[in-house]
Amino acid sequence: MNALLVIFDLLLTLTLLGLAVVTLTSREPRRAVILFIAFGLLLALVWARLRAPDLALAEAAIGAGLSGALMLAAARRASGRTTSPADSGDAEDAP
């Protein structure tokens, strides 16, 4: 067995699970979304290691990028609702 590869595998898995835990336990919406984007990018890295480059590309572009952009807009609305309803400069959810 290749010891270096085993260490790399363990490191990747631990980082992935650790990122998942902090993503799911963080209270602030924006922080959770940014951690989720980091989680998606690391997942793409793991899939590149598992010989799935097609999926790594798709996950980095769609799973992390587009989902992240969608959720960031929602997080902005969520935090604007709890702290200050009339957030300046953001007319995103004007009727």
Binding site: A20, L24, V46, A52, S67, M71, A75, A78
Partner: peptide
């Protein structure tokens, strides 16, 4: 939003098992 992130992480886990 937290429920959505949780569902997405769950889906990522399913994809991870398949990969």
């Amino acid at each position: 939003l937290r429920k959505l992130i949780a569902i997405n992480v769950m889906g990522a886990g399913v994809f991870h098992i398949l990969v």
